[in-house]
Write a protein that binds this DNA or RNA. Structure first.
Lengths: 226, 226
DNA sequence: GAAATTTCTTAAGATTTCTTAATAAATGAG
DNA sequence: CTCATTTATTAAGAAATCTTAAGAAATTTC
């Protein structure tokens, strides 16, 4: 599970990050609302901890903006303990409101509570549906892939590579980038592993693997789906 | 929407009731945990406000008991503002924790936030009925399972796993996801426990467990019913 | 409190999937 | 066109995942 922490006070962000990492959550950090919205569209985020007082775009505005398209849990963070602010925040779509200073363990407990609620109700996967790119369709809920209506059986890693590329249509990923995203670690083995997987995927989704219709190479840079 | 308020202090119950009624919520009142559990099984309740310090059955024990069968939002109420108590309550399955004395408007805002989360994620409307997948039918009302008209006896855990998968037909659940949903806690024991349960379910519902017709594995990802 | 049932743990075996390494083909620069 | 570099192909051994079985621990039933 990945958690996005947004606060202009870097010390606070770092200290929250330490506690959440200790619970094996993935952590992303942002220091203002605009970057947070960008980070949201580029990463898989399951919960947001959002400070209210921030430059550029404050927490409430950020919350309203993101609620237009996303339904993930948001815990607001604020130095203001005034009830009016809490009510405003909760009404704007927040799932919880924690006032500074806070006990990190309590925050972690609230994070877990929100994620439990979200996951048991099947919130994850709800917003990911089917990605369609001409004849190719990737169902991120059933983890299935179809080409021209025909089911295609991919192995787990093959599927994850294809989903990554399909989710970011026409964006080019280097072999190392693919490795980082799919394996969640740095690539130390070389690019060949990726090349082999790419070939296997092509064998399964392309009519003619020699002339890929979907999974294309960009010479010297990487691969993309288009 | 109906809200159950549970506190041994009748004045507090009444004052909360007034505020919630003002927001057009239906209100049920109980003054101890035992009555609360009874009220739950007899009425349609969408959210519970639960005091911790109570005679007979305290709030935490009541919460744990009701979480065995129900997943509705619970807001704990307590005079104790100590962090350890909050963490205990949230870990036990509460969705929020409010310390007395509290601002009624804040409580109402938190109620609304929880109900919003619950309803948008489809917590309500997940009504009981019969789920049929070709020859397999799962009666979520009686908690019974039939295969080709024949009754099948599943253990409680087996049933809950099957119901989860049947409710979300063809959606793939990882072992950890199944664990989170059925046990309501993080999986720390490893995936093998799930695998064993899956085998037992297959033994009971599949004609030939080697070639599962209903409960299928998705290699490297998880299981699904299809 | 004993028996039966359910749940969990452990481990070996079967199967699928991944990585490696060696070779071949394609590409773009000079 | 030729060469250096990048990507593609192939096959086989290694690694990971799933299945099966059996027994221990916990829980429930009688």
């Amino acid at each position: 599970m990945n958690i996005l922490i947004v606060d202009d006070d870097r010390e606070i962000v770092d200290s929250i990050a330490i506690f959440l990492s200790g619970e094996n959550y993935g952590v992303l950090k942002c220091y203002n609302g605009i970057d947070a919205l960008a980070a949201l569209s580029e990463n898989e985020v399951h919960l947001i901890i959002l400070d209210i007082m921030m430059p550029k775009l404050d927490g409430i505005k950020t919350l309203i903006k993101l609620r237009e398209s996303r339904n993930i849990p948001v815990i607001l963070l604020s130095a203001k303990s005034e009830d009016a602010d809490k009510i405003l925040g909760l009404t704007a779509g927040a799932d919880d409101y924690v006032t500074k200073p806070f006990n990190p363990s309590e925050l972690v407990a609230r994070v877990k509570s929100q994620l439990r609620r979200y996951t048991t109700l099947g919130g994850i996967g709800k917003q990911n549906g089917v990605i369609t790119i001409s004849g190719l369709s990737v169902n991120t809920e059933n983890k299935t892939v179809k080409v021209d209506g025909e089911d295609v059986r991919l192995t787990p890693i093959e599927y994850r590579i294809l989903e990554l590329l399909a989710r970011n249509r026409s964006r080019v990923f280097s072999a190392d980038e693919i490795y980082r995203n799919v394996w969640n670690e740095e690539n130390v083995v070389g690019d060949n592993t990726i090349a082999v997987h790419i070939r296997h995927i092509r064998e399964k989704i392309e009519i003619n693997p020699k002339e890929p219709k979907y999974l294309k190479v960009v010479w010297g840079i990487g691969y993309k789906v288009d």
